[in-house]
Computed example of a mutant assay.
Amino acid sequence: MFTGLVQAIGTMKPLGGDSWQITFVSQSADVIMQDLAYGDSVAVDGVCLTVEKILDNGFVATASPETLRRTTLGDEQNPEHYVNLEPSLRVGGKVGGHFVMGHVDGIGQLVTAEQTASSWEMTFTAPDAIARYIVPKGSIAVNGISLTVAAYEPELSQFTVAVIPLTYDETNLRDLVPGSWVNLEGDILGKYVEKFLSPGQQGGKTDMVTPEFLAEHGYV
């Protein structure tokens, strides 16, 4: 589990087979390297990968063909692109963003990025697999970055986020251009709410939360 607060920037290049080398390039790499251990989970552009070998300034991880197909990590047009890096949340650690699982729901594209007096306003497309979890003022992870939805246009399948200068400068959002692909993960809370509110079959009865059900159990 992660919080969507990127700790460092790195590059990712193929080593052959399913192995990839992630190399730290930002000065904040020590934050991750000093506590990195074999078997740890690290979010790479929002994708949870397992550390299989520790290098002097990075690590080696496996990204399966399924992971590459469903995320931007296997971008053949940009094989050594910059990636956002975040170590997994430790017990007792600060949750500064929101709960991010590292399981990408879909891929979106940057539509526009406009600088304002106090932030960057970035608009992305969202596939149906994640669009249903997007709500104004709700949370979404873009390339592993915890962001707040400023606006959502369902008819266009687009959402807009306001990115503060610190986040823009210290992540790979700064490298995006219109048409760039990004990994998207919806808020896990929305997924559970959706499941609890959806009809299902359990013991031959329809299992669904209704106003009557809520009233019966004291929610009035």
Rank of each mutant, 00 (worst) to 15 (best):
L5V: 15
V6G: 02
Q7R: 15
G10R: 08
Q21S: 12
T23W: 00
S26R: 09
S26A: 13
S28L: 05
A29H: 14
D35N: 13
A37H: 14
Y38D: 11
G39A: 10
G39D: 11
V44G: 03
V44K: 03
V44T: 14
V47T: 15
C48S: 12
C48M: 05
V51W: 05
E52K: 13
I54A: 04
L55W: 00
L55E: 15
F59D: 07
V60R: 11
T62K: 15
A63V: 11
S64L: 13
P65I: 10
L68R: 14
R69C: 06
T71Q: 06
E76Q: 14
E80L: 07
H81V: 05
L85H: 07
E86C: 07
L89I: 10
V91L: 14
V91K: 04
V91A: 13
G93R: 09
K94W: 12
V95K: 06
G97M: 06
G102Y: 06
I107S: 00
G108P: 03
G108K: 02
Q109M: 09
L110V: 07
T112F: 05
E114P: 01
Q115V: 06
T116E: 13
A117D: 15
W120H: 13
F124L: 01
F124K: 02
T125K: 03
A129T: 13
A129R: 07
A131V: 00
V142W: 01
L147V: 03
Y152E: 01
L156C: 01
L156P: 00
V161Q: 02
A162P: 01
D169N: 12
D169K: 12
L176G: 01
V177S: 12
S198N: 09
P199L: 09
Q202P: 00
G203T: 05
K205R: 13
T206C: 09
V209A: 00
V209D: 00
T210H: 02
P211Y: 04
E212R: 08
L214W: 03
L214S: 06
A215Q: 14
V220K: 14
